[in-house]
Nucleic acid binder design. Structure first.
Lengths: 125, 125
DNA sequence: TTATAAACTGATAATTGTTATCAGTTTTGT
DNA sequence: ACAAAACTGATAACAATTATCAGTTTATAA
């Protein structure tokens, strides 16, 4: 993979964002900053970085895919009211890979856990 | 919800299938059986049954959604080689809801776990 | 350095999975 | 048997993503 200025900008935009943005959302931020980076380039580079493990792709939320620069193992919670995505620490499911491999004999390369529910903020209301 | 002959056929097609089919796949089976059920009806009814808990919708695999008539709590493994989807028993992650609720204070309504890797069949080759 | 191949880009057309629409049909409760 | 509600097939519309393509940038090595 070669260096590209656009990829660097896309990664920084992702990393600086507290949220877990979609490709579209990153594209909008870049457009407002007059970066002149096309939507196709955003998709291309997010997917490229995800497939080489530099970032994480979060699928199965609504329709869109979201991206996460936080690559240490963790899970996600999506609020059914506000739509916000929260990180969940991996300690909630200890030895999950080992247990599953033992039980099935399959080789596990990755796994994702997604919770749906209502976050604290939205419960207050 | 009213009774519908098409919905019954769609459910039976789903239940009789060992695999976890997509809407498209069910539609193809029905078409071969000359059922004359339209793709829209397949989508409509799978979604309807999923939202009332009669079946399960599995999202976040590749692009398509898949469906599962097995509604007891369990997880999924998708083989990166053959694409087959396997059921994983819920025992691999005991108390996962309780733990996550305690840790976050969020209310959890549902959760999904998806593993990616290589299944036994494909490892043999 | 410059030449060259490979990897990249923006713009946009194309694709794909899914949903909406709509006129007509079934189902259900009275 | 009748009206209201829920359903249907056909197909247009939609939204997210990917493919295409001519031109540009990057890495390599003579």
């Amino acid at each position: 993979m070669n260096y590209s200025k656009q990829r660097e900008i896309i990664y920084k935009t992702l990393a600086d964002n507290v949220v877990h943005p979609s490709a579209e959302y990153i594209y909008e931020i870049l457009k407002e900053a007059n970066s002149n980076i096309s939507l196709a380039t955003v998709y291309r580079n997010l997917n490229k970085m995800a497939s080489c493990g530099h970032i994480k792709k979060i699928e199965g939320l609504e329709d869109k895919a979201h991206f996460d620069h936080n690559t240490f193992e963790h899970y996600h919670f999506i609020c059914q009211k506000c739509g916000k995505i929260y990180d969940i620490p991996k300690e909630i499911a200890p030895d999950i890979i080992q247990k599953t491999q033992n039980k099935t004999g399959f080789t596990i390369n990755s796994h994702d856990i997604v919770f749906h529910g209502i976050c604290l903020e939205c419960k207050k209301e």
